[in-house]
Computed example of a mutant assay.
Amino acid sequence: MVNTLPPIAVEFHWCASCNYNCIHCSYGQRRQNKSRLSHEIITQTIADLKELGTKAVYLSGGGEPTTLSKWDIYAQSLIESNIEVALITNSVAIKPEHYALLRKFNYIAVSVYSTKEEQYKAIVGSNHFSGQFELPSKLKTKDSKLIVGARCVINSINYKEIFNTYQKAMEKGFDYIIFIPAVDYEKRRIDLTQEQKDNVLKQIEKGLANINPATTNLINVKNNGIKHYSSSYLPKLQKSIICNAIAMRSNAFINYDGEVYLCQPLIGN
Results as ranks from 00 to 15, higher is better:
residue 104 K to V: 02
residue 113 Y to W: 02
residue 121 K to H: 06
residue 117 E to Y: 00
residue 108 I to A: 06
residue 152 C to T: 12
residue 149 G to W: 02
residue 107 Y to C: 09
residue 129 F to Q: 14
residue 104 K to A: 07
residue 140 K to Y: 05
residue 133 F to H: 06
residue 98 H to F: 02
residue 132 Q to D: 13
residue 104 K to H: 00
residue 131 G to M: 08
residue 116 K to P: 03
residue 105 F to L: 11
residue 138 K to S: 07
residue 114 S to Y: 00
residue 108 I to G: 07
residue 116 K to M: 03
residue 129 F to C: 11
residue 107 Y to M: 05
residue 128 H to S: 13
residue 147 I to E: 00
residue 151 R to D: 07
residue 131 G to W: 04
residue 149 G to A: 05
residue 110 V to C: 14
residue 117 E to C: 02
residue 108 I to F: 00
residue 108 I to Y: 02
residue 122 A to Q: 15
residue 113 Y to T: 13
residue 138 K to W: 03
residue 109 A to D: 10
residue 143 D to G: 11
residue 132 Q to W: 11
residue 148 V to I: 15
residue 148 V to M: 02
residue 103 R to Y: 05
residue 101 L to D: 10
residue 136 P to C: 08
residue 108 I to D: 08
residue 138 K to R: 14
residue 134 E to P: 11
residue 133 F to K: 07
residue 121 K to T: 04
residue 117 E to G: 06
residue 116 K to T: 01
residue 152 C to Q: 13
residue 116 K to C: 01
residue 134 E to N: 14
residue 108 I to Q: 01
residue 142 K to N: 11
residue 104 K to T: 05
residue 110 V to F: 01
residue 146 L to M: 10
residue 129 F to L: 06
residue 144 S to M: 08
residue 153 V to Q: 14
residue 114 S to V: 03
residue 115 T to Q: 06
residue 152 C to L: 15
residue 110 V to S: 09
residue 113 Y to Q: 08
residue 135 L to G: 09
residue 120 Y to R: 03
residue 124 V to S: 15
residue 136 P to S: 12
residue 153 V to L: 07
residue 121 K to P: 08
residue 152 C to K: 14
residue 118 E to H: 10
residue 152 C to V: 09
residue 130 S to G: 04
residue 102 L to E: 12
residue 138 K to M: 13
residue 130 S to P: 08
residue 127 N to P: 02
residue 133 F to P: 07
residue 121 K to A: 04
residue 146 L to H: 14
residue 150 A to I: 03
residue 139 L to K: 15
residue 102 L to M: 15
residue 148 V to H: 08
residue 129 F to N: 05
residue 105 F to I: 01
residue 105 F to Q: 01
residue 126 S to E: 09
residue 98 H to K: 06
residue 139 L to F: 14
residue 137 S to P: 04
residue 148 V to P: 15
